[in-house]
Write a protein that binds this DNA or RNA. Structure first.
Length: 484
DNA sequence: AAAAAAT
């Protein structure tokens, strides 16, 4: 079968086929005709579902049919949450438009603005931007949108999570009202839905979130280990299992740099990518990792979402993310485009609470393994999915909040158990409470989408149902930055 | 006890 969708011209299709894509993904099959028909689109599409092509292909098709091939005005605007994603969308755009007379440009902070201004003067049909620099350009009157045909919000949920909502609103004020609007988001939170409502009219909605064929095939397991043994275990896994490549996630910038050093000392070439590194270095590292020149990349949240690396074999969670949604995104870096992938998490005691949130979110337990020589001194409990605190034991479903369940009695929750007797070093734990858990998840999903949270929706409704535990800390840090 | 994004 060859890639073919009615309405796309041969010059675009041949560029797509050249990339080795054979069949449109479900989101592409649904969204492309709608976009070609000029409709607004709201799409709930997970990473790896092919959503970039789902909006780029029809948009390029429309633009290529326009009269002014070299318009000095922007005709399509893509807003993306991170610089890396903007770059990547631009790269894809260049590939798909290789047979067309269209120009595209990525625009974001951290690099010289003059070059971007010159690009605008030379003429850009498709602009892919992060909100901050774009707003800057708008204020400098370096950019106009009078001829904008279509606006695309990519990873809308992520943009809200990152606090871009007011920037986005300010940008929207400068756009012509009648332009076609497309919104893509991995999740449909209240905030995203609100945004979608103000943005779109008469929109067609798609969701491929629950389509198993769109779900990447990812083998997930975790290794229990003492915290101070993690880097030793990681280098052991890398050498022992002869890993060729891995994207390693870690929560802190400092931790990323430290781990890169530790691996280097063991003769493993690894680099750290995070927000404190210059944009030039970040771009270079990602390029090297993509091309295979760099085998092991250690990343903070910069690379957690959206970043697309062809045939990435595996993702390692050196520690678990605070937001269980980020776990989904992290592992979504592997197993893309129908390929298989591995997602391995290193679990020490202080990751346990985060694991509970993640397993609740997944609705099932992750497979536990132990590696000889790295068995933790105190085994990690099997899972809190199976653990209900005393005061909630009768007639209570396992809660989904994960907030208050660990206080106090954690140590008594069968900690000695976790499979020390597994000769094979692996064990798939039973899921007695699986169905109840799923029910609980569904309930919380409904709560979220209907806005009937037990708590009043004060947290601008952009994330999961608990408020941001970092708010106070961030306030303090911001004040400190203002003073200096 | 954090990361990301404008300068």
């Amino acid at each position: 079968m060859t890639f073919s969708i009615s309405g796309l011209s041969e010059s675009i299709l041949s560029a797509v086929r050249e990339q080795g894509y054979n069949e449109p993904t479900p989101i592409q099959a649904q969204a492309i005709p709608a976009i070609l028909a000029g409709q607004d689109v709201i799409a709930e599409a997970q990473t790896g579902s092919g959503k970039t092509a789902a909006f780029l292909l029809p948009v390029l098709e429309q633009l290529s049919k326009g009269e002014t091939q070299k318009a000095k005005r922007i005709r399509a605007l893509v807003l993306a949450p991170t610089r890396e994603l903007a770059l990547q969308v631009n790269d894809a755009c260049r590939v798909y438009s290789q047979n067309l007379e269209l120009t595209s440009m990525a625009m974001f902070g951290g690099v010289d603005a003059e070059e971007q201004k010159q690009g605008l003067i030379d003429g850009v049909d498709v602009l892919i931007a992060t909100p901050g620099r774009l707003l800057d350009m708008i204020y400098q009157k370096a950019i106009r949108f009078d001829e904008l045909d279509v606006l695309i919000l990519d990873e809308a949920d992520r943009m809200l999570d990152m606090g871009f909502i007011s920037d986005i609103r300010k940008i929207l004020e400068r756009l012509p009202e009648q332009c076609q609007s497309l919104l893509f988001s991995a999740t449909m939170s209240d905030g995203v839905q609100q945004l979608a409502q103000t943005l779109t009219s008469d929109a067609v909605s798609f969701s491929v979130a629950d389509d198993p064929s769109a779900r990447p095939r990812i083998e997930q397991w975790l290794v229990t280990v003492d915290k101070d043994q993690k880097s030793a275990l990681l280098s052991h896994l890398i050498t022992d299992l002869q890993w060729q490549q891995a994207l390693i996630f870690i929560r802190t910038k400092h931790g990323a740099a430290k781990l890169a050093d530790q691996l280097a000392k063991r003769g493993i070439q690894a680099e750290a990518i995070h927000g404190d590194r210059s944009q030039a270095v970040r771009t270079q590292l990602l390029d090297d990792f993509r091309s295979g020149k760099l085998s092991f990349l250690i990343a903070t949240g910069v690379a957690a979402r959206g970043i697309d690396i062809d045939l990435l074999e595996r993702v390692v969670n050196y520690d678990l993310p605070d937001d269980s949604e980020d776990y989904i995104h992290r592992i979504g870096r592997t197993g893309r485009a129908g390929a298989s992938g591995q997602a391995i998490s290193l679990l020490s005691k202080d990751d346990f609470k985060r694991l509970c949130a993640i397993e609740s979110r997944l609705g099932h337990l992750l497979e536990r393994r132990e590696v000889e020589g790295f068995i933790p001194r105190k085994a990690v409990p099997v899972s809190i999915l199976n653990y209900v605190p005393k005061h909630k034991r009768e007639g209570n479903e396992a809660g989904t909040s994960g907030d208050d369940r660990n206080k106090g009695k954690r140590r008594s929750s069968g900690g000695s158990g976790a499979g020390k007797s597994n000769a094979g070093g692996r064990r798939h734990t039973g899921d007695k409470h699986g169905s109840g858990q799923k029910r609980a998840n569904r309930r919380s999903d409904q709560d979220r989408s209907k806005g009937t949270d037990r708590k009043p929706a004060v947290n601008s409704g952009n994330k999961t149902n608990n408020s941001d535990p970092w708010a106070a800390w961030n306030d303090k840090k911001d004040r400190k930055l203002d003073r200096s």
